[in-house]
């Protein structure tokens, strides 16, 4: 399971970076820039890699203490960002960056929870 550690911390750290960038956008009252969406989709890609890695470990015989909780977190880590980005696809107002901040922060927390429930 230690093989998963680097990607967990990369996802968590990068998620924090995306959340901070989005929070700055809200603070500046600036319309949501395209690059923030690109940062968020990159985080989604990293989250998908994390989810595949976590699922691979389970398939290869690793059994977490609570399998259902662990799988719930694995599903959540890939679902949160796309749902958030779809919900604001027609809105480029500054507050839509706040949605990205919340989703990115939640993705980071869920990534750490995947590590904690391994």
């Amino acid at each position: 399971m230690s093989a998963l550690a680097p990607i967990v911390w990369i996802v968590a750290g990068y998620a924090l970076l995306v959340a901070l960038a989005a929070a700055v956008g809200v603070a500046w009252r600036a319309p949501r820039p395209r690059w923030l969406d690109q940062l968020a989709w990159m985080l989604e890609l990293l989250s998908a890699v994390l989810a595949v890695g976590a699922l691979g470990l389970v398939v290869n015989g690793h059994r977490p203490d609570s399998l259902s909780t662990h799988l719930g977190y694995v599903a959540a880590v890939v679902v949160i960002l796309p749902v958030a980005l779809l919900s604001i696809r027609e809105d480029r107002g500054s507050w839509s960056s706040g949605v990205v901040a919340v989703a990115a922060l939640a993705t980071g927390v869920v990534a750490v929870r995947i590590w904690m429930t391994r």
Binding site: D91, G93, S94, G98, V99
Partner: peptide, 27 residues
């Protein structure tokens, strides 16, 4: 332009702090 208040002719609200609240509630 983003701003508070419901959009004209629609129940769909415009951009505003409620978007963040809705995201938190959904989470």
């Amino acid at each position: 332009a983003p701003g508070p208040g419901p959009s004209a002719g629609s129940d769909r609200p415009r951009s505003g702090p409620h978007l963040v609240l809705l995201a938190l509630y959904a989470l």
